[in-house]
Nucleic acid binder design. Structure first.
Lengths: 212, 212, 212, 212
DNA sequence: TATGAATGAGTCTTCATTCAT
DNA sequence: CATGAATGAAGACTCATTCAT
C-alpha cells in the first residue's frame, strides 16, 4: 500500500542473504515470537533478545520488520504448497487424496507450528507487493482443496451452479484446519495422524455417518 | 438473563458508565475499527476520529484501551450466550438443536459482525481478571456445543473414553464458524440461513452424506 | 509569572467564599494531600475524592489549583504570624522570647502540620502576585527571628558589620525548625514542648553548653 | 571505597551505561533542572533541550525518568558518603571531627549544589527498590553525624536514656545543613569555609557561647 | 450551589530504523 | 558482518479547566 514502488524495486533483492544457520535461527525465533504474541506486538528488540543478535545486526538479513514477516511466510507457505502439490500428484481416489491433504497439513503443522500460524493469521500485516505474493500462494493452496472437495461431492469442475456449496465446504475445511492452532497442544492432545483421521471422517461422513 | 446481574456487577468495577446513545456509538465504532485492523493496530486516536469524540473525552467512558476492548467483548459475548442458552432450552432433538445453534450463531454474526469478530480473535489481548471473565463466557459457550454434539454422536455424557472425539468435533464446528469471519461478505455471499443449512448438513452428514 | 495581569485583576476577588464548614474541609483535605505528595503531584481529582466534592464543584471555592494553594498558605501563615507577633509583644528578655518563638512555632506545627508543611515547601509553586504576597509574610516572620537573635547575640540593631552572622544564625534556626517536618511523628517522638526546650537549649548554648 | 562494588552491582541492574562524557552532561543537566524546578516539574523534554539530546536518545542511558533521578542520587550521595567516611577515619577529637564533617559537607555542596539538592529533597520521588537503596545511604550518612554528636555531648554509645536528645541534635544539625540549599548563593554570601566555621561554632557553643 | 460531560495541551515512553565505525 | 548510539514519529494516558444545566 504505502510503498508499492519501493516494494517492487526491492523485491528482487528483498534481502541479501537467504541461508546460513544464523539466518535460520533468526527466522525461527521471530516466528516463535510472532506466533505467540502476534506480529505487531512483537518488537525488533524482542527478536534481537530471543535470537542473540544485536538490534542493528539483524538488518543485515532483511530490510524491514515487514520483510522479516514476509520471508517467514514465503518460505513456509511455499514449502507446504510444494509438498502438497507433489504429494497429491501421486494419485488415489478423491476421498483418499482428501485424507492425505489433511494428514500432511497437520503433520506439517506439527513440525512448523509457529511458522504456519504466522502464515495463517498474519497475512493482513503484509501490504503491497508482499501481500499479493503470499495471497497468491494461499489462493493456490485453497484451489487444491476446492478441486478435491468438488470431486468428493461429485460436482463437475466448472459447474457454476454448484460452485458456492463447494467453495463453502472448502472454507469449512480450512476453518477447521486453521482453528487447530488455537487449541492443539502436542503433549496434551492426540497425535496429528489420529487427529487427521478424525477430521477426515468428520468431513466425509459427518457426525452421524462417522458413528454408524 | 440469569447472569445479567453478575455481568453488571463485574463491569461496574471496571468502568463508570454503561449506557447512553453516545456510549453505544463509541463501542460500535471501536469494534468496527478493531475488527478491521486488530486491537493493537487500532489507536485511540483512530477511535476518537471514527466516533467524533475527543481523545481525552473517551476516557470518561472507560479506564483504558484494554477496558474498552473488555466492554465490547463482555456485552457482545454475554448477549450471544444468553440468547443461545435460552433458545436451546426450548427443546427439540439433538440434530434440530445443532441446526438452531448454528443458525442463531450466524444470524447473530450478521447483526454484530464486528463485535463478534473482536470477541473471537482478541481474547488474548485481554489480561488478568478481564481475560478470566471473558474466557469463562467462552468456556460456557463451548460447553453448549459439546453437549449437543455428544448427543448427536450418541455418546453418553461423562464418558471419558469418548470425550476426545466429542471435544474434537466441537472444535471442528467452532473452527468452521469462526473462520466465517475471514471470508463471508454479506452482499456477495448467500444469506446466513442458507449458509447455516449448508454447514449443519456438512456437520451432520459430511460431504458424502449431504450429497446422497 | 505567566499571568501577572490576570493575577492582579483576580486578587481582589480571588475566591468568592471564604468560610463555611465545607470550605474548611476542602482546604484541610487539600493541605493533607499536598503535604504528603507535594503540590504538583496532587491532582484536582485527588482533592475531589478526598473531600467528597465533585471535580467541577470545587471550582466554586477557588479559581484555580494555584489559588487553592495560595489560600492554604495565606490563611495558615498569616495566622501563625499574627499569633507570634502578638505573643512576642508580651515582653520578656531575649532568651525568653526566643524560647517562646520556638515553642509556639512547634505548637502551631503540631496543630496544623499539613498546612505549615505546605507553607514551607510549596512557596515556589506560587507565581506572580500570589508568590509576592506569601513571600512577604515569610519575610516578616523571618524578621521576627532576626530581631530576637540579634538581641541574644548582643548585636546592635542596624550594625552592618554584624548583619551576616545574625542572618546566618537565624537561617540555622529556621533550618532546624523546617526540617522538623521531615522527621517528627507525633506518636513516636516526644511532645512539642519538650522538643522546643531541647531546641532552644541547643540554639542558646550549643552542644557543649547545654550539657555542662 | 568498600561499597563501590555493591554500588556498581546495584546500578548495573538498573541501567546499562555508566560513564562517558555525554552521560555526565546528561546527569548534570538533569540535576540542574530538577534542583531548580523539582523532579515532577521537570519534563524529559526539558532535559533533552538542556542537554542537546533528542527525547528518545536519552533513554539509551536510563530506563525511565525515575531511573535518571536514581542515578543522580546514587552517584552523588555515595561519593559524598565515601568522602566523609574516609575523612572522618583520619581521627581528631570529636569537636574537630564535627567541624570537618560540616566543612566537607558544605565544600561538597558548593561543588555539587544541584545534585546534592536533588538528593536531599527528592528522595520521596523514588519508590520501591530505588527508594530503599538511597534511603540506606542516607541512613549511613545520618549515623556518621549521630556518632560524632554523641561524643561531643559526652553520651556513651548505646545509652538508651540519652538516645533521643542525641538524635534530635543530629536532626537539628542536618536541618541547618539542608536548609542551606534554600538561601545560600555563592556570589552573594560568604565562602563555604567561613559558613562552616559559623555553623560549627553555633552547634558547639550556641548563640551565647560563641559570642562570649 | 453543584455536577456530568468533555477537551486541548502535554506527559512519559516505545518503536522501527539508521549510520558511523 | 556486526553493533553502539541515536532519533522522528507515534502511542496510551492524564491533567486542570470549562460549560450547559
Amino acid at each position: 500500500m504505502k510503498d508499492d514502488a519501493a516494494a517492487s524495486r526491492g523485491e528482487a533483492e528483498v534481502s541479501r542473504v537467504r541461508s546460513g544457520e544464523k539466518y535460520e535461527r533468526l527466522l525461527g525465533g521471530a516466528a516463535a515470537l510472532m506466533a505467540r504474541q502476534g506480529y505487531s506486538q512483537t518488537t525488533m528488540r524482542d527478536v534481537a533478545r530471543e535470537t542473540g543478535f544485536s538490534l542493528a545486526g539483524m538488518y543485515y538479513y532483511f530490510k524491514s520488520k515487514e520483510d522479516l514477516l514476509f520471508q517467514i511466510q514465503q518460505r513456509t507457505f511455499s514449502e507446504l504448497l510444494a509438498l502438497q502439490e507433489e504429494q497429491l500428484a501421486r494419485g488415489g481416489d478423491a476421498a483418499e487424496r482428501l485424507r492425505r491433504l489433511i494428514d500432511r497439513h497437520l503433520a506439517f503443522y506439527v513440525r512448523h507450528a509457529d511458522e504456519l500460524k504466522v502464515c495463517t493469521y498474519e497475512l493482513d500485516s503484509l501490504s503491497g507487493e508482499k501481500y499479493q505474493q503470499i495471497e497468491s500462494l494461499r489462493r493456490r493452496y485453497f484451489a487444491l482443496g476446492v478441486a478435491i472437495i468438488a470431486e468428493v461431492m461429485g460436482v463437475r469442475p466448472g459447474s457454476v451452479h454448484e460452485a458456492a456449496p463447494v467453495r463453502h465446504a472448502t472454507l469449512f475445511l480450512f476453518g477447521m484446519l486453521n482453528w487447530v492452532f488455537m487449541w492443539y497442544r502436542p503433549g496434551r492432545d492426540c497425535g496429528p495422524e489420529q487427529l487427521a483421521r478424525e477430521m477426515a471422517d468428520f468431513v466425509l461422513d459427518g457426525l452421524r455417518g462417522s458413528r454408524s
